[in-house]
Design a protein around this nucleic acid. Structure first.
Ligand SMILES: [Mn+2]
Ligand SMILES: [Mn+2]
Ligand SMILES: [Zn+2]
Ligand SMILES: [Zn+2]
Lengths: 140, 140
DNA sequence: TTCTGAATTGCAAAACTATTGCATTTGCAA
DNA sequence: TTGCAAATGCAATAGTTTTGCAATTCAGAA
């Protein structure tokens, strides 16, 4: 049984071509993917179905939305034990200014901050922009 | 001479009603403002002019773009010596889940991170979501 | 103060991004 | 194999940001 199929089973979701292709792309690329990038790879699939699948996957704890400062949401696989009840995706994200790819740095937690009196924190987002390992030293 | 006018002079920008009203709102609110919020306050001004003014101000180092938790862009006054050559806006931002207001925490720097080998950082973004000082204990 | 050219604006249109309604198709468990 | 809820495709709508261009306005020079 393929990895993508296992993920769908575990989430209690039906196996469909759109879902399998989207999971395959995410697994293969190992980074956050935008709606428009899915659209390019899934030629036979309707735009709307991709939007709906992204929402379903996010709700089920398969994906988390990554804010990378461009005006487009990207989505990355949740690595741990996220599910419908609770997401735990508090790690640093890296956006490459050269190739525009966005990656989860799962191993890097977000440093805690002491806030001014009166503020209370629920969630934090730490995003770094720069040049990724693939692009360093690679001209252009 | 009003504060807003002084800012325009210092930046070498012409005085126009749109620019003055936008700076006035930013100075009065002391927080990051979204395009749609400017649009509500500046009734006589065209949407497109607001977009263009935001870009101009950003380029001149008067504003910096703030990404809040919903991937929506907001804009806040630069507090220090930003200009056309260089922005220095590396501080933490706070987005309140209750009132949706976004503020710069200018006094809080962003903790540095050691990145995996090969990555190089240019800029960092640290955003906290939670409840702000104004909203804590204020029902609703 | 008046004049003049460049900067700024408004309006229309286009380009992008995301959501909704509904009829049809599909996956899966009984 | 069948029944039915879940998922999809398509058309339409809604929301956001950019672009082109003609008309207006600002600020410095005369
Ligand atoms: Mn992530
Ligand atoms: Mn700020
Ligand atoms: Zn890169
Ligand atoms: Zn608040």
């Amino acid at each position: 049984m393929t990895r993508a199929l296992q993920i769908l089973k575990d989430a209690g979701l039906r196996k469909t071509p759109c879902r399998l292709q989207m999971l395959d792309l995410l697994l293969q690329e190992g980074r956050a993917i935008s709606h428009s990038e899915f659209e390019l790879h899934l030629e036979a699939i309707d735009r709307v179905t991709i939007y709906r699948t992204l929402h379903t996957f996010e709700r089920k704890g398969l994906l988390h939305k990554v804010i990378d400062g461009q005006n487009q949401s990207k989505f990355a696989l949740c690595s741990h034990s996220c599910d419908e009840k609770e997401h735990r995706d508090e790690h640093i994200h890296f956006h490459c200014e050269n190739c525009d790819k966005t990656r989860c740095l799962d191993e890097l937690g977000i440093p805690e901050i002491v806030l001014p009196v009166g503020y209370s924190a629920h969630r934090a987002n730490y995003m770094i922009e720069g040049i990724c390992a693939e692009c360093v030293g690679a001209g252009t």
